[in-house]
Amino acid sequence: MEWLSPSCLPIVVLLMHCSLCLAVTVTTTRHKVEVHEFADAELSCQFNTERENNPRIEWKKKGQDVSFVYYDGHFKGPFEGRATIQGATVTLRRVTQKDAGEYRCEISAPLDSVSLAETNITLRVLVPPHTPHCEIPSSAVTGSVVQLRCRDHQSIPPATYSWYKNNQQLPPPRNANASYLIDKHNGMLEFKAVSKDDSGQYRCLASNGVGSPKMCDGNHMSIEDVSVVAVVAAVVVCLLLVAVASGVMLLHRNGFFSRHRGRSNVNYVPPPQEVQPQDFKHTQSFML
């Protein structure tokens, strides 16, 4: 038997050490997957074992509770019949918002020194804009503050908004002195003080880079001047009502509406009269 040379001892020690550190490894090509709604989503999972030839593959989905996607060689729950697996890579068919979330691929190799490894994948399902809901007043008075609102609650990522007046896009305000403000994130168009020039047909467009933008039907907003005659008439009517009410209160306070008007003491009750004994009168004479 030949003895190993001293120069070979480090290599032998390293090989012996590595033989004790055999472990299963798991990787993925994409930790974040984004697909359009109703498209297919591929969740990649590759693994490598040192000793185990028949590792156990499990897929789980995180949420309020952790649920099984693939277990014991079969897909579970809502994934049954609409998912396939190749190696450890899973493909989900026609994904919806219910499929969005964080998934975990777990590989168990009992014969390896480190017998369990995993990798996480986040699935995001993109939804194109829907027709936004618009709130546009039909009329307003000059000088008043007016707000127009636009919102789409279903698009993912959240939509941004732009406003159109008479089919012409309103440009973003360039400074703080602009007559209106546009918040492209919450869809609000606000006029600080509307004028007759702001009358027109208003519509809102929602877009998020996924699919085609969508626009609401819109509405015509009319701006009217304040009627001076109507304001004066309203003021006169209010003054007359106040004067009449004040007069009624004054008359009532002075007893004009009292039912015992003219008596010095309305609470006076005359004392009861005394009953006088009646005189006995003879109606016939008689003799003893």
Rank of each mutant, 00 (worst) to 15 (best):
A41F: 01
H31E: 14
S199A: 11
Y161T: 05
R93L: 15
D40H: 10
C21T: 09
T28G: 06
V69H: 06
G73N: 00
K60W: 11
T283E: 15
S222L: 02
A176R: 08
P172V: 13
Q276H: 12
H17T: 05
N177G: 07
F191I: 09
N265M: 01
D197P: 05
V24G: 00
S207N: 05
S199Q: 07
S139L: 11
F47T: 00
S19P: 04
H36K: 06
R261K: 02
I156E: 11
P129W: 08
R51V: 14
T119E: 01
A39M: 12
N175L: 10
A230D: 10
V248W: 07
P137N: 02
E102L: 13
A245H: 15
N267S: 05
S212Y: 04
L43Y: 07
Y71N: 02
R151K: 08
F38W: 11
Q201R: 14
A230S: 05
A39G: 07
V226S: 14
N267Y: 03
V266S: 13
V235S: 15
P6H: 00
S227D: 07
N53G: 11
K32H: 13
R259T: 12
N48I: 11
I57C: 03
L148Q: 06
R149M: 15
P10S: 03
S195Q: 08
N167C: 15
Y268D: 08
L14N: 07
I121R: 00
Q147N: 12
K76Q: 08
W59N: 11
G200L: 04
G211A: 04
Q86W: 03
H31N: 14
G87T: 04
